[in-house]
């Protein structure tokens, strides 16, 4: 889910709205996890909080910085043709800024997912965490090239696949609704990444548009599922 500066339509606006909502939800879950850490001093809650803060941060980048860059880029391109010389002077800088922001977006997303996968692995090893973090960093460096879009989504699919498997296992053990909503949310976000990959692979415009539409919808459903858990906890709904 990366905005490319020259290829934007209303689908990106939908993606922006979904990301705003996602940032809000992830932030709240991060705050609750942090409160749990402060109360229990359990390391896993600290990492859970950190992973959701990273997810909130990436969603915020997607929802704010990238659209602003897009608007700026296109306004300059279409409206200020008389200032074309100035625009041409800024164009390389703008593109570089967008690459750096894409890099940050990919890095924070994958770091967030990696932390979640690490948490569910139950392996208490700092060196493993450093190794995983280094691999994610190396992969994020590829965000400076076009191939990063599929690479980023495929990595997200792998990490979320692992997380989803554990959340589904947790639901099967507990059989409670909140666990079900958590499992559903990760699975739906995973599906959204699959749809983003499909939107890149298919060459037909209609199919691409369909997948590009279904991607943010699936993501929205995933965030809504997390939102339901927050609401249920807030109002004390049990089982």
């Amino acid at each position: 889910m990366i905005i490319r500066l020259m290829a934007v339509n209303w689908l990106n606006a939908l993606g922006t709205l979904v990301s705003f909502f996602g940032a809000f939800i992830a932030l709240f879950i991060g705050i609750y996890a942090y409160k749990a850490f402060k109360a229990t001093e359990k390391r896993e809650y600290k990492l859970l909080a950190l992973s959701f803060f990273l997810i909130a941060f990436q969603a915020l980048i997607y929802a704010t910085v990238l659209p602003l860059l897009y608007i700026f880029y296109n306004k300059m391109y279409f409206s200020l043709s008389n200032l074309e010389i100035i625009f041409m002077a800024y164009k390389p800088i703008l593109l570089q800024v967008s690459h750096v922001i894409n890099f940050l977006f990919i890095l924070t997303t994958l770091m967030g997912y990696t932390l979640l996968a690490y948490l569910y692995s139950k392996i208490q090893s700092k060196s493993l965490l450093i190794l995983l973090g280094s691999l994610v960093f190396a992969l994020s460096v590829y965000s400076f090239s076009y191939v990063s879009f599929i690479g980023f989504n495929l990595t997200s699919i792998l990490l979320l696949g692992y997380v989803s498997y554990h959340t589904i296992k947790n639901y099967n053990e507990k059989k409670n609704r909140n666990a079900l909503y958590i499992a559903a949310s990760f699975s739906l976000i995973l599906i959204s990444h699959l749809l983003f990959v499909a939107s890149e692979i298919y060459s037909s415009d209609q199919t691409r548009a369909l997948f590009s539409l279904l991607g943010p919808i699936s993501q929205l459903a995933g965030y809504l599922s997390l939102f339901i858990v927050l609401i249920r906890a807030q109002y004390g709904k049990k089982k």
């Binding site: 609750y32 996890a33 109360a39 507990k174 909140n178 958590i182 927050l230 906890a233």
Partner: peptide, 15 residues
């Protein structure tokens, strides 16, 4: 009350 909310959310994750 706050602790119940925290517990409900963290339990849902199954960590």
């Amino acid at each position: 009350n706050e602790a119940r909310k925290i517990k409900e959310i963290t339990d849902a994750f199954g960590l």
